[in-house]
């Protein structure tokens, strides 16, 4: 965080300003924008609008500081990333950058403002180098059921950063009575020590490990 960000941290979530203060701040342009087009102030403002009930397991495994790649199973595609985002916010008080947003005009730009990026491995690697938490699905998109296939090209680009397998189990959305969404974080995984960046074999093995870890977390949860 720098003073030039007008008191806003681009990584750590903060309490939203009261509406009038927030409007004044935005009218005066006193808010930060990050290199990926994310608007942390807007993220804090809209967070209360999505009150998805989430139960977090092993939240202590989410790092308090520094980069990590969270790899979660897929589902309907809209609420899974939101559940992961809320779980991380609750466990570590940090913002999560969701990977795999559609790169469409207007919609894509709006989603990027809320902290998402597309599925380019180079961009995900840049996001991790910038020290953010990135949440990616086991596949090129969040849609479709099942755990999904390990995204090997993503692991090649991001080799060396810690990877956290995540299992997301659906609950009832929007505070309807019933089970909350359950988000379980696995142990951090990484390539063997001494692995060179861009090592295809190490990335492929890590992808397999992460895929298996997510499947195991889902099986434990069932």
């Amino acid at each position: 965080m720098t003073a030039a960000n007008y008191g806003l941290d681009t990584d750590r979530a903060s309490t939203a300003d009261p509406l009038l203060v927030a409007l004044r701040r935005r009218a005066a342009g006193r808010y930060a924008v990050d290199e990926f087009g994310g608007d942390p102030h807007l993220m804090d403002l809209v967070a209360p609008l999505f009150p998805l009930p989430v139960a977090v397991e092993h939240g202590e495994r989410v790092p308090d500081l520094g980069p990590a790649l969270l790899i979660a199973n897929r589902g309907l595609g809209l609420l899974e990333p939101l559940a992961v985002t809320r779980a991380v916010r609750r466990a570590a008080g940090r913002r999560t950058r969701v990977v795999g947003a559609p790169e469409l005009p207007i919609v894509g730009d709006a989603l990027r403002t809320l902290g998402t990026i597309g599925y380019r491995p180079d961009d995900v690697a840049a996001m991790l180098r910038a020290g953010h938490l990135a949440a990616a699905p086991l596949g090129p998109t969040w849609f479709r059921g099942g755990a999904g296939a390990p995204p090997r090209e993503l692991f090649v680009a991001t080799l060396g950063f810690p990877v956290l397998p995540v299992a997301v189990r659906p609950g009832f959305p929007q505070n309807l009575p019933g089970r909350p969404w359950r988000v379980r974080f696995g142990e951090p995984l990484g390539p063997p020590p001494g692995t060179r960046s861009g090592d295809q074999l190490a990335a492929a093995e890590l992808a397999e490990d992460v895929g298996e870890a997510v499947t195991a977390l889902l099986a434990d949860d069932a």
Partner: peptide, 12 residues
């Protein structure tokens, strides 16, 4: 470090 955007810069 960091970034700005057209809307934010203009308002700033």
């Amino acid at each position: 470090p960091g970034a700005a955007s057209p809307w934010q810069a203009v308002r700033r």
